[in-house]
Simulated scan of single mutants.
Amino acid sequence: MYIPFDELPPHARLWIYQASRPLTEAEQTEIKPLLQRFATEWSSHGKGLQASASLLHDRFLVLANNEAETSASGCSIDASVRFVRELEEQLGISFFDRSQLAFLNKGEVETVAMGELKNKVATGDINENTLYFDTLVNNYGELQQAWPKPAGSSWLSRYF
């Protein structure tokens, strides 16, 4: 069962996929109905999930499920991964490259390769107050309250 993204309860579980490049308006227009259809049809052991999906900041695909209603099973999570992989093929984009970190810089999403992070910290381009899009956020409440969040408040704190 589809639920509008902004009506998700704070405890709703999230899966965040970061695109390897910004999505164009045309791509977003193409993807949005596919996201809604997937969320509508997404199920666990034959029972529909109370699910939603959204594109945020032209870069992040977010799938969500209200776990208080029905928990996502391993099979349903596998189905969501297959869906995202199909989008990758359709768009010629990657949603599974974890080697790029995303930061908010002057209102724009900027990506930094993991291998460049220490250098960016050393030069001051990234500091503990730089806003970071932590794809490890796992519930809607946290997304609403602290996303992006200061890098020093994330797993990146060890670099400062």
Rank of each mutant, 00 (worst) to 15 (best):
Y2D: 08
I3S: 01
P4I: 03
D6K: 13
E7C: 01
P9E: 14
P10G: 06
A12L: 07
R13C: 03
I16H: 05
Y17Q: 04
Y17F: 15
Y17H: 02
A19R: 01
S20N: 10
R21V: 03
R21H: 08
T24E: 11
E25Q: 14
E27K: 06
E27M: 04
Q28G: 03
T29M: 09
E30I: 00
L34G: 00
L35C: 14
R37I: 01
F38M: 07
F38I: 07
F38P: 02
F38N: 06
A39R: 11
E41I: 05
W42D: 00
S44Q: 08
S44H: 07
H45S: 02
G46Y: 13
K47T: 09
K47S: 11
L49G: 04
Q50F: 10
A53P: 06
S54R: 13
L55N: 09
L56P: 01
H57Y: 15
D58Q: 14
D58F: 12
D58G: 04
D58C: 10
V62A: 02
L63R: 05
A64K: 08
N66K: 10
S71H: 13
A72K: 05
G74A: 06
G74W: 14
C75I: 00
I77T: 10
A79N: 02
S80T: 07
R82F: 14
F83K: 06
V84N: 05
R85M: 11
E89V: 15
E89K: 15
G92N: 03
D97G: 04
D97H: 13
R98T: 09
Q100I: 09
A102L: 13
F103Q: 04
L104H: 02
N105T: 06
K106Q: 05
G107C: 06
V109E: 01
V109D: 01
V109T: 08
E110P: 00
E110S: 05
E110K: 03
T111P: 02
V112M: 10
G115C: 12
E116W: 15
N119Q: 11
K120E: 15
A122I: 07
T123H: 12
G124H: 12
D125F: 09
I126V: 12
I126M: 09
E128H: 12
E128P: 01
E128W: 08
N129E: 15
N129W: 14
T130P: 03
Y132G: 07
F133N: 04
F133A: 04
L136P: 00
N139C: 14
Y140I: 05
G141M: 08
G141V: 11
E142A: 13
L143N: 01
Q145H: 10
A146C: 07
A146L: 10
A146Q: 15
P148G: 14
P148V: 08
K149Q: 14
P150S: 07
G152T: 06
W155A: 11
L156R: 12
L156V: 11
S157F: 12
Y159T: 07
